[in-house]
Simulated scan of single mutants.
Amino acid sequence: MTAQPRQAAAFPVSAAEFAGLHARVRRRAAPGIADRGALDNITPRQVRAAADEVGSGLTVTMAAPVETRQGPDNPDPCRHVMTGAVMGGIKASGLQFARDRIAMNVHGDADSHLDALCHVIFDGTLYNGVPASGLTPDGATDLTVGMASDGIVGRGVLLDIPRLRGVPWLEPGEFVTGDELAAAETAQHLRVGQGDLLFVRVGHRRRRDELGPWDTTDARAGLHPTAMEFLAERKVALLGGDGNNDTAPSTTEGVDFPVHVLAVHAMGLHLLDFLQFEDLVPVCEAEDRWSFLCVIAPLRLPSATGSPVNPIAIL
């Protein structure tokens, strides 16, 4: 299938339309009083069923290598320095240890990371109406990465939109609709269901690797806000993308990151941003299957709004 590019400017969402969309997906997601958001859509039975999908036992990372070089999409890169024996000199005999120190901007535009439910503030509140007053200079008190401290395990599903369109990647500014998500299901012979960990490839990482990085603040491919109705109807547990899931420029009047608002604030979906699927796609094609057991283990950062992450697909 080859489709015409879909640019944000060609399918705008007004402020009133966005408010209605926010209300609809929130209602369909049916947030509880004291829950883990959409992660509660995953049941132990579904985890066992996902484990039964393992065939070859091959494991594949969906994380991009951590960037330590400055670039147009990464002005504040991870800082990695060696400490210990390397700094003091390596002796010819006896025991020494090489050590490291790492500091990074978790929510940057290059490194793979998880957004916790306290990451998005919209109209003064967090997900499920939780007051944003719990966000302090010392950390967050509610809806933190700690909600996922036992890990996120379930059936992963990868929908490959460039494959559907017959192109290597979506160009910056293009978006994915709900109809395309459904079409990708059909083309890949599967169905996204309740509790699934949904990953949507737009080809961001391949484009970056082949053409070089660019300023993603102004231009990137992602989901159209209306595509979130597909996720709400299917009651998925998590959304991950190889961009940051939002299109730029924004499709929505007055909201720069509408997918983030709908996913995190309205639906309670943890987001995984800036993954890479270039290692996984050829394996899925070779095995002719696009679902797999998926294991995600965020760092135990009890007051943080996000975490570096390395999702693993087990086929």
Results as ranks from 00 to 15, higher is better:
residue 25 V to H: 00
residue 21 L to D: 05
residue 24 R to F: 08
residue 274 F to G: 01
residue 158 L to Q: 02
residue 313 A to N: 01
residue 172 P to S: 01
residue 143 L to G: 01
residue 243 G to C: 09
residue 10 A to F: 10
residue 36 R to L: 06
residue 148 A to Q: 01
residue 176 V to P: 10
residue 155 R to K: 13
residue 238 L to H: 06
residue 138 D to C: 07
residue 124 G to R: 04
residue 243 G to F: 01
residue 181 L to Y: 11
residue 131 P to S: 13
residue 88 G to R: 13
residue 157 V to G: 06
residue 129 G to W: 03
residue 81 V to H: 04
residue 100 D to Q: 13
residue 264 V to Y: 04
residue 194 Q to W: 07
residue 194 Q to M: 05
residue 153 V to R: 00
residue 119 H to K: 02
residue 257 F to N: 03
residue 1 M to F: 05
residue 38 A to R: 00
residue 2 T to R: 01
residue 26 R to S: 02
residue 48 R to H: 07
residue 231 L to C: 15
residue 203 G to I: 07
residue 243 G to D: 04
residue 308 P to A: 03
residue 23 A to K: 02
residue 251 T to E: 14
residue 61 T to P: 11
residue 212 G to D: 09
residue 279 D to C: 13
residue 304 A to Y: 10
residue 154 G to R: 08
residue 285 E to Q: 15
residue 205 R to Y: 05
residue 170 L to E: 05
residue 114 L to A: 06
residue 231 L to T: 07
residue 290 W to I: 01
residue 301 L to V: 11
residue 269 L to H: 05
residue 245 N to T: 14
residue 134 G to P: 01
residue 256 D to R: 13
residue 201 R to A: 09
residue 177 T to G: 11
residue 284 C to T: 03
residue 260 H to A: 15
residue 96 Q to M: 07
residue 138 D to W: 03
residue 211 L to F: 07
residue 135 L to P: 02
residue 139 G to F: 03
residue 71 G to S: 15
residue 177 T to Q: 11
residue 271 L to E: 10
residue 247 T to H: 10
residue 170 L to T: 12
residue 59 T to S: 08
residue 65 P to V: 12
residue 33 I to W: 00
residue 201 R to N: 11
residue 78 C to V: 11
residue 99 R to C: 04
residue 249 P to V: 10
residue 211 L to H: 03
residue 43 T to I: 12
residue 88 G to C: 10
residue 194 Q to S: 02
residue 263 A to E: 09
residue 142 D to R: 13
residue 77 P to E: 14
residue 243 G to Q: 00
residue 228 M to R: 11
residue 11 F to R: 13
residue 9 A to W: 09
residue 63 A to H: 06
residue 121 I to G: 08
residue 119 H to L: 05
residue 263 A to C: 15
residue 106 V to K: 06
residue 199 F to W: 15
residue 4 Q to L: 12
residue 171 E to W: 14
residue 13 V to F: 01
residue 143 L to D: 03
residue 226 T to A: 15
residue 47 V to C: 09
residue 201 R to Q: 08
residue 4 Q to P: 08
residue 163 R to A: 14
residue 225 P to N: 04
residue 76 D to V: 12
residue 186 T to S: 14
residue 185 E to D: 12
residue 94 G to F: 08
residue 284 C to D: 01
residue 300 R to L: 03
residue 236 V to H: 07
residue 168 P to R: 08
residue 174 E to F: 13
residue 93 S to K: 14
residue 198 L to P: 09
residue 171 E to I: 09
residue 245 N to S: 09
residue 210 E to K: 00
residue 37 G to K: 02
residue 15 A to C: 02
residue 166 G to Y: 06
residue 52 D to P: 02
residue 183 A to M: 15
residue 2 T to P: 09
residue 312 I to Q: 05
residue 130 V to E: 12
residue 34 A to N: 04
residue 251 T to V: 11
residue 103 A to Y: 03
residue 151 G to I: 15
residue 196 D to T: 01
residue 49 A to I: 11
residue 162 P to I: 00
residue 79 R to E: 14
residue 207 R to C: 09
residue 219 A to R: 08
residue 168 P to I: 09
residue 55 G to Q: 14
residue 113 H to C: 11
residue 246 D to Q: 12
residue 160 D to M: 06
residue 114 L to E: 02
residue 292 F to V: 08
residue 138 D to T: 03
residue 263 A to H: 01
residue 220 R to H: 05
residue 267 M to D: 06
residue 68 T to P: 14
residue 303 S to W: 05
